[in-house]
Amino acid sequence: MSVGNGGSAGHLAVRDLSIHFPTDDGLVRAVDGLSFTLERGKTLGIVGESGSGKSVTSLGILGLHKGGHARISGEIWLDGEELVSASADAVRKLRGKKMAMIFQDPLSAMHPYYTVGHQIVEAYRIHNQVSKAAARRHAIDMLGRVGIPEPAQRVDNYPHEFSGGMRQRAMIAMALSCDPELLIADEPTTALDVTVQAQILDLMRDLQREFDSALIIITHDLGVVAELSDDILVMYGGKCIEYGTADDVFYRPEHPYTWGLLGSMPRLDRAPTERLLPIKGSPPSLINVPPGCAFHPRCPYEERTEGRASTEVPGLLETEGGHLVRCHLPREERRAIWENDVKPMLETT
C-alpha cells in the first residue's frame, strides 16, 4: 500500500475514478472519471436517477465492485492510503474498520440465519481482539445507541423478528461498530416507510456528529440529501455533472439536469405523482452513453449549444468558488435561465 501526501487534500480523496465492466453487450462505463474529496465530520450527498453509477461508485471505494473482470482506474485516498493500487487483502482489512457501508434493503442485507447480535459481534471481532463476552456487550451498547429498545434482549433476535426501521438501525449499529472514519449509506431509506425514513435520517445525522466520521449518502431523492449534506455531487451517466456545496446545488444550480431533479422532487404540498418539471425520457444505458453531453437527448436547452451538445463532451468546469458544472451553455446564460425561468416555476405553488 502506498502511503503519500495524496490524501492531504481531504480525508477521503477520489481522483479520476473509473469503473468499467466488459460484458457480452459491450463495455459498461458505470463510473467514468469521478473526483471528489471529503473531510471527517462532513457529509457528501451523491444524487442521480437509478442507473447513474452511484452504487458502483460506493462499492468501488470499498473494493467490492464485483465481477472479476471489472476495470478500475484512478485513485482513492483514504487517510493517506491509496486503495486502487493496494492489495485485495489490504483493502479487506480496512473494510468494516476504516470504511463501512449501509445498504438499501436491510432485510436482504442481513443473514437470515444468524442473530442480529451475532452479526454485529462478527463485524466487531474481525477487527478487534476482544472476547466474545466483551464483543456482545459492545453489540448491546451499539444497539442501544442506534435507538433499539431493550437492546439486551433484542440482541438475540433474528433479522426477521425486527421491523424494517429497526433492521436498518441494526445495520447502522453494525457499520459503526468499529468506529469507521468513512461511512457510506447507499439509499439507506429507500426501502423504508415514509415515517421511518425521517427517523433514520435523524439518527444518521446524530451519529455522524457523535462518531465524527465522513459520511457519503447516496440517493435518488434530493430531499434526503438536502437535510444532511454539506456537499452535493450530481451524477448522470456515470459522470459528475454538478458538484458544489449544498447551497450551491440547491439555491444556485446551474445544470439543466439538476434543475430537472429539483423539479421532480416529491413535495409534501402535492400529490406524490404530481411533479413540477419532470425530466422527459429515461436515463441512458451505460453501454451506449450518448456522445457529447450525455444528457442532450433529454435536455430542453440542447439546441442552444449550436450542435456542440451532441459532439463534444462538456468539461466539468468551475463556475464560482469550487462549484463545478458540466455544461456547454455559457455561465451567464445558465444563470439567466435559472433566475428567470426555472426558479420562478419551482417557487410557484
Binding site: 470499498l62 467490492l64 464485483k66 479487506r92 482489512k93 480496512l94 473494510r95 468494516g96 474498520k97 463501512a100 457501508m101 445498504f103 434493503d105 436482504s108 442485507a109 442481513m110 443473514h111 437470515p112 462478527e122 463485524a123 474481525i126 477487527h127 445495520m171 453494525m174
Partner: peptide, 15 residues
C-alpha cells in the same frame, strides 16, 4: 449473489 454475502464482505471478513 445475495446481499448478505456482500454485507459479509463489507465487514472485512476473509473470503
Amino acid at each position: 449473489n445475495e446481499d448478505y454475502v456482500r454485507t459479509a464482505r463489507a465487514k472485512g471478513l476473509p473470503e
